[in-house]
């Protein structure tokens, strides 16, 4: 059993975890709950991307994960700032 397969399996598990987060997004009573779920999905997606990059052996794919780690932060901040009542 090569590490590549292990990475693939781990990524599959993470996708299953994303499903749980999406469930929270569906039931979360307030918007903040849904945003937490979004944050979780986001972290999981970044991890999944890195793992898959290793699993498929395609190095160039990992760049996508970096972009995600950087950028989803921006979306989160906008939502948080809305909740906070800023952004007039």
């Amino acid at each position: 059993m090569s590490p590549e397969l292990g990475f693939g399996v781990a990524a599959a598990v993470l996708v299953a975890l994303m499903a749980i987060s999406v469930l929270r997004m569906a039931i979360g009573p307030t918007v903040a709950d849904r945003a937490v779920a979004l944050d979780t999905v986001n972290t999981l997606v970044v991890t999944t991307m890195v793992l898959l990059g290793a699993a498929t052996g395609l190095v160039v794919l990992v760049d996508v994960a970096i972009v995600y780690a950087l950028l989803s932060f921006v979306g989160m901040l906008y939502i948080a700032r809305y909740l906070e009542g800023g952004l007039k």
Partner: peptide, 17 residues
Amino acid sequence: FQGGAVLASVVALLIVA
């Protein structure tokens, strides 16, 4: 496009912060 989008989100980040 992609790099431009990253740079544009820097602008968005500055706006929100």
